[in-house]
Amino acid sequence: MLTVSDLSVARGGLPVLSGVSFALQAGEALILRGPNGSGKTTLLRSIAGLQPPLSGTIEGTDRIAYAGHQDGIKTALSVEENLGFWASVFGTGKIEAALEGFDLLGLKSRLAGNLSAGQKRRLGLARLLVTGRPVWVLDEPTVSLDAASVALFAGAVKTHLAGGGAALMATHIDLGLPEARSLDVTPFKARPEELGADEAFL
């Protein structure tokens, strides 16, 4: 569903990771590990198509639903309107299942501005369900979630995988997904001599 081959990515004009390759099949989950600043976010943004990679290829960008550090929630709109907007942008239209999946039914008509940080995060993750896209690319999805919400999220990922989806995420906590593989990005750290765009200046 998602094939990444020999990918090199840069942040601020400097290569951070190089030679990253992996493939993700339906029903699989891959968890990226690595210390802060190791390039996980840059890698995920490149895979989601937000920034061009230095080299290498990504297949399946148009199957991706991306969720970054920020949830893209409009505080002046209600929970329902927020989700409804993304549902119509992605052409799916149905938000009930997503509301239920992340336990937001009771908050449906609440203004998103009045939600707690954890509730906002749940709303942000519920967006993944309304996109209808099979490959989830998630950057630190469990930030500001409590234990119960993490379980809820893990359940949603399991359901997604069981339904033929795939997930690629960067996270530090254990989600209790037995089928998930993990990939440490540290060995792919770009060496200083691989300065890509700037090499002509050295």
Partner: peptide, 17 residues
């Protein structure tokens, strides 16, 4: 400009190493 750019690239490499 080229030399300034080269200096920034060198500094960045320094930070990376």
């Amino acid at each position: 400009e080229i030399r300034a750019r080269r200096m920034r690239a060198l500094l960045a490499r320094e930070r990376m190493a």
